[in-house]
Design a protein around this nucleic acid. Structure first.
Lengths: 250, 250
DNA sequence: CATCTCCAGTTCTATAGAGAACTTATTAAT
DNA sequence: ATTAATAAGTTCTCTATAGAACTGGAGATG
């Protein structure tokens, strides 16, 4: 019986697609374009079903898609909201400090260096920018109980992060992403990590206070904003004897 | 209007739970108990809705849960089936060989050693068995283009895997899990991996044909059957310069 | 033998409606 | 002023129904 009337004709997109798909695409677009920002409240199911002239169940199905894509969150009785990622939890979901006897405390962070520099090619490529684009380069040390745990090189595109250079380095707490948001309006929403291992160079041995030649784990991360733009490139090195990385496969 | 009549009263479990939850629990139980085996066809939605006296939509919702738990698979027009994991794909989803210029070929496998031995404590613990339980210990080398890529220690509980010892080692192909199933009726469905790094020992350097002291990635895996029983413990070591491990976080 | 058509069975999409369960704010009562 | 009841708004659960879209096989047709 569907398509007898003109439901969803205001929706863009391929008409042969299921209605709930087209609505989901539309709502996803609202989020990616920045019309709806993380934390915002989304329209209610009834409002949407009236607005687009479709059954409540169909709207529900569309929203369900975005929920398990991680874009929306639903709260019974309260409403539907654009999801705000909690990075302090989720980024350390896989990554565990071996000696940490159960809990995942966020390690302290100390910025050792912060300069404006043209980006090398491997960073520019990861951030989808031109080689030599203006960037902010940082060296950062992360500590647990005053013991060095991770040494990080971090690159940011200079353009949207200009305000970050003005902040005194001591004002930056243990987590960078909240600072990116408050100071520059850049919200990190997702990330990809690629993990490998190598032998400690003289430099990293000094930073991590381990022997040169000891094994270190290397994690490269590209962090992205709500519309998928790459925002930050980061390479972290940690003592292999204190880390392990856990996943489940099925 | 729900619960006016006696829908779902044949279902066990807490009556205060939603109907679709209780049905999902029931179906999950069928799978975990081994009543339904991977590859089997599950009853149709209409059959279930008549059997338990509930609306088709409710049945559908229950099945949807199990689908995204990975237990069931639905095929339009064909039916619903208990999922058969495709391990050759999924286990290498995260794990990539660096030089592999795009494709993920399954590396060849060669069993170097296979003996009956009592399990050491760290294996027994992972497999939820007593220390010293009878086990099958293997050393296995995996190669890509005749180059050694991974060196593996593998432990199996002797009890359900007795038939595996009878097979000639040369008859075992590149993948072990299909052999576990055909020879011993043990189907691997999920696994957990824990990854770290170390320096190549003399032994692994010899096996992988690398320098002693070169960095190696170490992956420990526990593979589980359809009811969650641990079936296999495995520790794989690979050259760090040829591996990287990829994940996405959000 | 090969191909086509039709049919029964299945999942998928969509509609309409009713009430339960929960949250928040407002209003009334103490 | 604090507490309790009420109401409005939201998501959640469930019912019932209808047809679309797809699959596989059986039977007709060439």
């Amino acid at each position: 019986m569907q398509r007898m009337f003109e439901q969803g004709d205001e929706l863009p997109g391929d008409e042969r697609l299921p209605l709930y798909q087209r609505l989901a695409d539309e709502l996803r677009q609202e989020i990616h374009s920045g019309q709806w920002r993380p934390g915002d409240r989304a329209p209610s199911e009834t409002w949407l079903s009236e607005r687009y002239g479709m059954a409540a169940g169909t709207v529900r199905q569309a929203i369900a898609m975005l929920v398990d894509e991680g874009l929306l969150e639903r709260f019974r009785g309260r409403g539907t909201y654009v999801r705000r990622p909690r990075f302090d939890h989720s980024l350390f979901r896989f990554f565990r400090f071996r000696q940490a006897s159960g809990e995942n405390a966020v390690p302290e962070g100390r910025i050792l260096r912060r300069v404006l520099e043209p980006m090398p090619s491997y960073v520019a490529r990861a951030l989808a920018l031109e080689e030599g684009s203006a960037g902010i380069a940082m060296t950062r040390l992360r500590l647990i109980n005053d013991q060095p745990a991770l040494a990080e090189e971090i690159w940011l595109p200079a353009d949207p992060f200009a305000a970050f250079m003005e902040l005194p380095v001591d004002a930056v707490g243990p987590l960078l992403y909240p600072v990116y948001e408050s100071a520059c309006g850049q919200l990190v929403v997702s990330a990809e990590e690629s993990l490998t291992a190598e032998i400690a160079s003289a430099e990293t041995a000094r930073l991590l206070r381990i022997d040169q030649g000891a094994p270190v784990i290397v994690i490269e991360r590209v962090a992205r904003g709500f519309n998928g733009t790459p925002l930050e490139w980061r390479r972290s090195r940690g003592r292999a004897d204190q880390f392990h990385y856990k996943t489940e496969i099925r």
